[in-house]
Amino acid sequence: MHLEEARLIDLEDVSKTFRTPGGEVHALDHVSLRVEPGEIFGIVGQSGAGKSTLIRTVNALEKPDSGTVTVDGAVISQLKGKELREARRRAGMIFQHFNLLSSRTAQANVELALEIAGTGRSERRHRATEILELVGLSDRAGAYPAQLSGGQKQRVGIARALADNPRVLLSDEATSALDPETTRSVLDLIRRLSRELGLTVLLITHEMDVIKRICDSAALMEHGRILEHGPMDELLTTPGSRLAAELFQLGELPDSRGTTIIDVTFTKQTSSEPVIARLAREQGLDVAILGAAMETIHDGTQTGRTRLEIPAATGDQVEAALTYLRSQGLFVEVVR
Rank of each mutant, 00 (worst) to 15 (best):
K268L: 12
R88D: 10
A244Q: 06
A113T: 09
D233Y: 12
L101C: 10
I211L: 05
K80S: 15
E319F: 13
G198Y: 11
H30L: 12
L243V: 06
L330E: 02
L114S: 02
P311N: 11
D188Q: 12
S103G: 11
V110W: 01
A163V: 05
R7A: 14
L11Q: 09
R257T: 09
A292F: 07
E246K: 14
Q269P: 03
D316R: 14
S272Q: 14
R160L: 08
H97Y: 08
K268T: 13
T200Q: 09
A108W: 01
G118L: 02
E123L: 03
G258V: 02
G50I: 01
E181L: 12
L187Y: 05
A113M: 04
R19G: 15
D179Y: 00
I116F: 01
V69W: 02
A293W: 04
T20E: 13
T306C: 12
A177V: 09
P37S: 14
A288D: 11
R195F: 07
S138W: 09
R56V: 00
A320F: 09
Q154W: 05
H2V: 13
G142E: 13
A74M: 10
D65N: 13
Q147E: 11
A245K: 14
T20L: 15
I261P: 00
V58R: 02
S138G: 14
A244H: 07
L193G: 13
A161P: 05
A161M: 10
L54E: 00
T270P: 01
P239C: 11
G50Y: 00
I214C: 11
S217E: 04
V335R: 13
P145F: 05
F98E: 00
E252P: 08
G81F: 05
L8W: 14
V44P: 00
E181F: 11
L247M: 14
S32W: 08
R85N: 13
I116Y: 01
R104W: 10
Q46E: 15
E173T: 03
K212D: 04
T265L: 04
A292L: 11
L169K: 02
P254R: 08
F41T: 03
D286G: 10
A219R: 03
N165H: 15
V318N: 06
I276A: 06
E282G: 07
F331V: 07
R160A: 03
A218T: 10
F18Q: 08
D233F: 11
G120A: 15
G50D: 00
V186F: 01
D179G: 04
